[in-house]
């Protein structure tokens, strides 16, 4: 699952088109767009809007360790309009709290520090981008996923030569559109990392918990037993090997634990 956050519709348009996302008209709290495993949410400007949107989206989607991207515009004292960077350090100006999203993916995008402000400014700080959402995005996002899968990507929209001003959606879209390929490449690579974290014993778990009753505590034990089975007998279809005499979840777990404990220890 990929969750994309933007503040403005103009920042989302290129991605909506690229991924053929469809507006979710039954979702009224925020403008949301979706296709398969991609969910895009437009929060509105600022930290409060951002944190609300991320919390709402992640709570509603309830997926494990999603890839989460914050995509938008930023100002910079010297960088040229249209340049795109991935944020390698995000600092909240008000709290001075910092986040360091690990840079695990080889990407054509450069990287730079990012300072999140509460209000727009034309006094750009030295050597970093400025925006109004990223720190809140990170703060909220890492409650739902691991920081490696959270990244903030910014396109320079204003600098000392061309200070921030009101921009049309189409102008914003034209700044972001050239970087769509880099963004999708990043999302795809992060998606592969996410896949490594996913537990693929879910189908067997569901089958067994439908067949027999397991308490919550037993369900935790069952999940670990299934992982152990997959590690030690990756080619064995567990369901097919369950002896006919087993008549309860408890009996099944005792049998599987014994079965695994008797396997020769080979690495």
């Amino acid at each position: 699952m990929l969750i994309i956050h933007t503040a403005l519709h103009g920042e989302a348009r290129a991605l909506i088109n690229h991924f053929s996302l469809k507006r979710q008209h039954d979702m009224n709290a925020f403008a949301c767009f979706r296709a398969d495993n991609i969910f895009l949410i437009e929060s509105g400007i600022g930290k409060t809007n951002t944190a609300s949107a991320i919390g709402w989206a992640c709570g509603m989607l309830n997926v494990s360790s999603p890839v989460m991207l914050n995509i938008g515009m930023a100002g910079h004292t010297a960088c040229s309009i249209g340049e795109c960077y991935i944020a390698n350090r995000i600092e909240d100006h008000a709290t001075q709290h910092r986040y360091y999203p690990p840079q695990l993916v080889d990407t054509p995008l450069g990287s730079d520090c990012l300072l999140t402000l509460d209000r727009p400014t034309e006094n750009y700080p030295e050597k970093c981008m400025v925006d109004m959402e990223a720190s809140a995005f990170m703060q909220a996002a890492i409650r739902f996923t691991t920081i490696e899968l959270c990244q903030s990507i910014k396109v320079i929209s204003d600098n000392t030569l061309k200070p921030a001003g009101r921009m049309k959606d189409s102008e914003v879209e034209s700044l972001l559109a050239p970087h769509t390929e880099a963004v999708t490449g990043l999302a795809s690579d992060l998606g592969q990392y996410r896949a490594e974290l996913m537990d693929n014993t879910g189908a067997t778990f569901s089958q067994l918990t439908q067949q027999w009753h397991f308490t919550k505590y037993q369900q935790q034990q069952l999940a670990r037993l299934l992982q152990r089975h997959q590690a030690l007998q990756p080619d064995e279809e567990l369901i097919d090997t369950i002896p006919a005499w087993i008549d309860s979840g408890k009996a099944f777990m005792r049998w599987l634990d014994g079965h695994l404990n008797n396997l020769p220890v080979r690495l």
Partner: peptide, 23 residues
């Protein structure tokens, strides 16, 4: 990248040792 203290990076809970070992 400059940081204030290594603990800012090392002690964050929402991170994954396994993924970070890749890079």
């Amino acid at each position: 990248i400059e940081c204030r203290h290594y603990g800012e990076l090392l002690n964050l809970k929402a991170q994954n040792f396994r993924l970070q070992k890749k890079q």
